[in-house]
Computed example of a mutant assay.
Amino acid sequence: MTVRVMVVDDHPMWRDAVESDLTRAGYEVVAVAANGREALARFAATEPDLVVLDLQIPAPDGVAVTTDIIDRRPQTRVLVLSASGEQDDVLAAVTAGATGYLVKSASREELLAAVARVADGEPVFTAGLAGLVLGEFQRRSAAEPDEPRLTDRETEVLRMVAKGMSYRAIAERLVLSHRTVQNHVQNVLRKLQMHNRVELTRYAIERGLDVDDEV
């Protein structure tokens, strides 16, 4: 199936160039946007499979847009394409839910390769950034206290949430009521001291839960 992509950048020439490269490579560019507000509105209207996104865009910025996108539709992949390679920007983007991060000095070939890999759910980073991200998450993990134990059912529900399944779909798969699934999710959020599906998804990925397996 053709991968449906949205391109978000406030620089028209750059945005048009990325759109053109993706179209020539066989991707379907379903929307473009110049700021965070446009991005969220057009994302809701088109529900792309992948978003190529600049961080430094008019409000809301790229980190906030990434958070909102993953919260609305966790199966959508986000590839950040930014002029900044600063550690804080990279970590903020990954924590928000971005699957990949490239700096704008990347070549056309590197961009297209990254889009293909991110579309498959594979993390992609400009050289040197992957080690930075891994090292930071390992540091944070080592600093965390022992985590509360989840029941087998809670873990099962967590994996399905991380796959982007709706509560209704989870209920049908597990032959449970919609309310029971909601209760399980609320229990997991409470135990892990988290607030939303985005945080649960990041938790599942960072802890190595095999969210790509069929459930």
Rank of each mutant, 00 (worst) to 15 (best):
150 L>R: 07
45 A>H: 11
202 R>V: 13
35 N>V: 08
34 A>C: 03
74 P>C: 03
145 P>V: 13
195 H>P: 00
201 T>K: 14
202 R>I: 11
35 N>W: 10
74 P>T: 08
8 V>R: 00
210 D>C: 04
192 L>S: 08
196 N>W: 02
154 E>S: 14
73 R>S: 14
117 R>L: 15
144 E>M: 15
173 R>P: 00
69 I>R: 05
215 V>K: 09
1 M>H: 12
99 T>L: 11
136 E>Y: 15
102 L>P: 01
180 T>K: 13
2 T>R: 13
203 Y>V: 02
13 M>S: 14
100 G>I: 05
1 M>Q: 11
89 D>M: 10
68 D>H: 12
25 A>V: 13
38 E>G: 05
33 A>D: 01
64 A>N: 08
161 V>N: 00
67 T>V: 06
208 G>D: 07
192 L>R: 01
70 I>F: 01
64 A>T: 13
168 R>C: 04
69 I>P: 00
107 S>F: 07
67 T>M: 07
114 A>P: 09
83 A>D: 03
152 D>P: 05
19 E>D: 13
141 S>H: 12
61 D>E: 07
71 D>G: 07
137 F>R: 13
181 V>I: 14
215 V>T: 09
91 L>F: 09
200 L>C: 02
69 I>F: 07
55 L>A: 02
52 V>K: 00
12 P>S: 06
143 A>W: 01
65 V>F: 09
179 R>Y: 10
181 V>K: 01
191 K>H: 12
120 D>G: 07
49 D>A: 09
27 Y>M: 10
177 S>Q: 15
24 R>F: 12
19 E>C: 14
136 E>R: 15
130 A>C: 08
93 A>P: 02
169 A>V: 10
114 A>F: 06
16 D>C: 06
29 V>S: 04
121 G>F: 12
141 S>A: 15
30 V>G: 05
131 G>V: 04
152 D>L: 13
169 A>M: 10
114 A>L: 09
102 L>I: 08
14 W>G: 00
90 V>G: 00
195 H>D: 13
24 R>N: 12
109 E>M: 08
124 V>D: 00
185 V>I: 14
213 D>E: 14
100 G>P: 00
138 Q>V: 11
198 V>M: 09
127 A>C: 05
72 R>E: 12
195 H>G: 03
19 E>I: 06
105 S>V: 13
